[in-house]
Design a protein around this nucleic acid. Structure first.
Lengths: 133, 133
DNA sequence: TTCGTTTCCTACTAAAATGGTAGATTACTT
DNA sequence: AAGTAATCTACCATTTTAGTAGGAAACGAA
């Protein structure tokens, strides 16, 4: 796993929304300013999060975004997977994003990297936005 | 950390050499065939490993590559860092490859990702080629 | 009913990273 | 001298990354 700016921005935005009162709508520009994120880029990111049901939104004046579910139901693992794919260090040890890679045939290497995958997934699955606010 | 094909091939080649008798020279083509690596690509990779003193070599007939130090002195961490940079999930929590990234200001996120960095580094620093042969 | 506001949607683009290839040169062995 | 194998550097196509641009749709207020 390597965090891209997309997933980092997504986490910042979600964290910001998690700190608001539930269901208060906040506009893209407000979040963008508060967290120093390029606004048009953030727009795309929030839209992705909305389509994946982590956010809800409404348009027009006093519109904006709010969390789509409670903060303790959104884990870091889900957010990172949504933007960056596998949490594992290489796809051949990934559960959800398996692909063939060169080290595949070396059992001893696979074992080490699976242990890393397991640690990372557990850690990020067990950490929710609620844990961080 | 995300493994690239470079670092995966490097690990395969090193592991192959670690399994040979010490100081036996093996040619690029032999390693390439044994581990299914594009030979000219492997050439570059071995050269990088040689410059970093993980391999030694000699030219000409019966030339080739061998480990430059004993297998228990070569950790996976060193190899991965050489080709892929930071072991950390994002540079702002990396010790050797620090750079600014967006999540930097969020202490709670930093804490989680530093724990991951620590686990990964320890695991890969404590695993040597000798552990894998 | 119209105006401003804000989300929604898609296309585009520049730069960097990735995964190699190609070919010439140097050095060693027989 | 011939063959073999490492050394070195340049090149290249594709994919990924990190955004930008601009219009359409919807909502609220006046």
């Amino acid at each position: 796993m390597k965090l891209t700016s997309r997933s980092e921005y997504a986490l910042l935005a979600l964290l910001y929304l998690a700190r608001q009162e539930a269901d208060v709508l906040v506009s893209v520009d407000t979040i963008a300013k508060a967290q120093a994120i390029p606004p048009k880029f953030l727009e795309q990111i929030l839209l992705t999060l909305k389509r994946a049901r982590y956010l809800k939104s409404s348009k027009g004046q006093h519109g904006g975004y709010a969390l789509g579910k409670s903060a303790d139901k959104i884990s870091l693992a889900e957010v990172v997977r949504l933007f960056d794919g596998a949490l594992a260090p290489t796809e051949s040890v990934s559960v959800y994003f398996f692909e063939h890679t060169p080290i595949e045939k070396e059992k001893s290497l696979i074992r080490v990297f699976k242990e890393i995958r397991d640690y990372v997934s557990k850690k990020l699955e067990n950490t929710t936005l609620a844990d961080l606010v």
